[in-house]
């Protein structure tokens, strides 16, 4: 299958940092994949996703998304990607519908199309009856679901998700995963970071384990489990590759 993302020797070193956050990463991601980027705190997951989604500039290296270069084709690229940040990137004093109208309109969707997309997504996420409630009144799970809808209204070709299920209950997590699976079925490539290894094992078609800014292993969940001796699940693989040392990070 065709690669939708091609990363070559990507580096990122923040100002005043002693080490590279992303250290020579090269990676190919195929169309229609659900790609999990897993790693302990401070491994470089968010930095990698931020570079790919155009939020920060790489120190060196190149990447192409759907054949488009971020430097040359920034506008076209932004039209085909979606991002769901780790924080609830919503206006708390606006209602769910108002937030979605605003963020959807940034992608130039017609009013009618946008309303239809919002109604469908809210319905799928079980938020229809809260559409006119202010987001600040929402529970954590509701905010996460709304956050996800805001990043997907324009039906992106590639969706970057940074810990989309962190801090939510089982029901919300299921709703989020189902929603993402549905999007993937419709053709969206999903790039996803998480600490929930069992969730990733179930959900992802391919996984890259990164630590200290470097990729340590790439493969399907089964391939990774089979690659490590005595590993029964992804957690065993993860510990084996990244160690048991605590990773406390000061940003």
């Amino acid at each position: 299958m065709e690669n939708i993302i091609e990363i070559k020797n990507l580096y990122k070193k923040y100002k005043h940092a002693e080490e590279f956050s992303v250290n020579d990463i090269s990676l190919n991601i195929e169309q229609n994949e659900i790609y999990g980027i897993l790693g302990p705190n401070g491994a470089g997951k968010t930095t990698l996703i931020s570079m790919l989604s155009g939020l920060i500039k790489p120190t060196s290296g190149t990447f192409k998304i759907n054949g488009l270069s971020p430097q040359k084709d920034g506008f076209k690229l932004r039209q085909i990607i979606g991002i769901v940040p780790q924080e609830y990137a919503l206006y708390p004093t606006l209602t769910a519908k108002e937030n979605l109208m605003f963020f959807g309109s940034l992608y130039g969707l017609s009013h009618k199309k946008l309303r239809q997309a919002i109604d469908e997504s809210l319905e799928l996420m079980g938020l229809s009856k809260f559409a006119d409630k202010k987001v600040e009144q929402f529970s954590g799970g509701m905010k996460r679901r709304c956050n996800l809808i805001a990043g997907t209204l324009h039906n992106p070709k590639i969706l970057f998700l940074d810990e989309p299920t962190v801090g939510v209950d089982v029901q919300s997590k299921k709703a989020i995963i189902d929603y993402l699976l549905d999007l993937n079925k419709k053709g969206t490539c999903i790039i996803y970071t998480s600490h929930h290894l069992s969730e990733a094992e179930e959900f992802c078609t391919k996984i890259a384990i990164i630590d200290h800014g470097k990729i340590h292993a790439v493969g399907t969940p089964e391939e990774l489990v089979n690659r490590v001796a005595n590993a029964e699940n992804l957690e065993d693989v993860f510990i084996s590759l990244t160690g048991k040392e605590l990773r406390d990070v000061v940003v």
Binding site: I81, I83, Y91, L106, Y107, G108
Partner: peptide, 13 residues
């Protein structure tokens, strides 16, 4: 700080 500017920055607008 609330992250909404991230959405604006990654959008084509």
């Amino acid at each position: 700080s609330q992250g909404t500017s991230v959405r604006v920055r990654v959008s084509p607008t």
